[in-house]
């Protein structure tokens, strides 16, 4: 297969950046998108040109490293998939493919298609956990949790932190990311003691990182490789309203 690639090139954070056009040919339909870029890079290196920088690691859709904005969509033309799990058989022979980095103010470009997503970690730092020290836990089966609840918590817990929700959102909101963690822990009895503080603190951090507001377009859930449902956002909203509108009986 043959493709014309329009790739965003940017030397570093200070550089203006621009698109450059490359042709690749002889690509097997069973090549993954990233392997196609590998092939391009091998050629560029051989030609003495600068290869394209892009993030990747596990290449099986779980580490959340990769993230390209392909033909106007986060992680490319298929819904609920990571870039590394996208195969060239999903493109038409001869197609023109536009490849951009994920764009958002909190995701500054490092080089070419590589962006800094550490803002997401800083949100987790504000409360995306249950404060338990190693060694202090009771027997695992002392806290029975209904299967349906555990399953639901699991659905929310599968977020891979790739930032596609932010990239796809017209407002560059990180709401689905935050909501996934809030909802995961809100489901579980272990998550209750810190529930009020967690949602408030994580939302405050999300704002101060410069993410936009959520306007419920649902683009995030369509692109989310972990299939985090929009019900996570509804759960966050409920928790946020509850945490702010009802009195905290134990607050000093």
């Amino acid at each position: 297969m043959r493709f014309t690639l329009e790739i965003w090139r940017q030397k570093n954070a200070q550089d203006e950046g621009r698109f450059e056009v490359y042709e690749v040919d002889g690509i097997s339909p069973n090549t993954s998108f990233l392997e196609m870029l590998d092939i391009l890079n091998e050629r560029l290196i051989k030609e003495g040109k600068e290869p394209v920088a892009f993030d990747h690691d596990c290449r099986e859709g779980i580490c959340g490293s990769c993230g390209l904005f392909i033909n106007g969509r986060a992680h490319g033309p298929l819904p609920n998939i990571t870039t590394c799990r996208l195969y060239m058989r999903h493109f038409k022979d001869g197609e023109r493919i536009v490849i951009e980095p994920f764009r958002a103010k909190p995701f500054p470009v490092i080089k070419d298609l590589v962006v800094d997503r550490s803002a997401l970690d800083r949100i987790i730092q504000k409360g995306g956990y249950i404060s338990v020290n190693t060694g202090s836990a009771p027997d695992a089966n002392s806290i029975p949790i209904p299967k349906a609840v555990a399953d639901r918590a699991f659905d929310y817990a599968t977020c891979i932190g790739c930032g596609a929700c932010v990239a796809a959102c017209k407002n560059a909101s990180a709401m689905l990311f935050v909501a996934a963690k809030v909802s995961h822990l809100a489901m579980l009895p272990q998550g209750q003691p810190e529930r009020r503080q967690r949602v408030k603190r994580m939302v405050a951090q999300m704002d101060s990182e410069g993410f936009g507001h959520c306007s419920n377009t649902g683009a995030c859930a369509v692109e989310c490789p972990a299939k985090i449902p929009l019900s996570a956002i509804a759960q966050l909203q409920r928790d946020y309203i509850w945490a702010n509108l009802t009195p905290d009986l134990y607050a000093r």
Partner: peptide, 11 residues
Amino acid sequence: HCVAQGIPFAR
């Protein structure tokens, strides 16, 4: 410990 951390093991 992992259950206390909120890891949603199968139940």
